[in-house]
């Protein structure tokens, strides 16, 4: 049973700002579907006693002391900016809104 169709791939591509051609969408839908099916198979094997895993490393609480470190010089910060003004990144007019 197919769970990932072309519409879904097109929607996700739009959300991720990835410009896909129609043939790429069709191809990816097929490839992603195989991956999703494979994961579904693993899920069938895992019982209730197996917790969902987000990290393969059995580590928790990696914390840092609240001590100020070195910051980047502002000219270095802006060196890679396509455009800058008054020490700030210059970006095209923002039409949407803050989240």
């Amino acid at each position: 049973m197919s769970t990932i169709n072309s519409d879904e791939v097109a929607r996700l591509a739009a959300l991720a700002r990835i410009d896909l051609a129609p043939d790429e969408i069709t191809r990816l839908a097929g490839e992603l579907d195989v991956i999703v099916q494979a994961v579904a198979t693993v899920s069938e094997v895992a019982g209730d006693d197996v917790p969902a895993t987000s990290h393969p490393i059995p580590l928790t609480n990696v914390l840092r002391d609240d001590v100020v470190g070195r910051t980047l010089p502002v000219d270095e910060v802006l060196a890679q900016a396509p455009a800058a003004e008054e020490g700030m990144f210059l970006v095209p007019q923002i039409l949407g809104e803050e989240q």
């Binding site: 910060v77 003004e85 008054e86 700030m88 210059l90 970006v91 095209p92 007019q93």
Partner: peptide
């Protein structure tokens, strides 16, 4: 021009 400046 209309644009925005960003301070991080």
């Amino acid at each position: 021009a209309e644009y925005s400046l960003v301070d991080y």
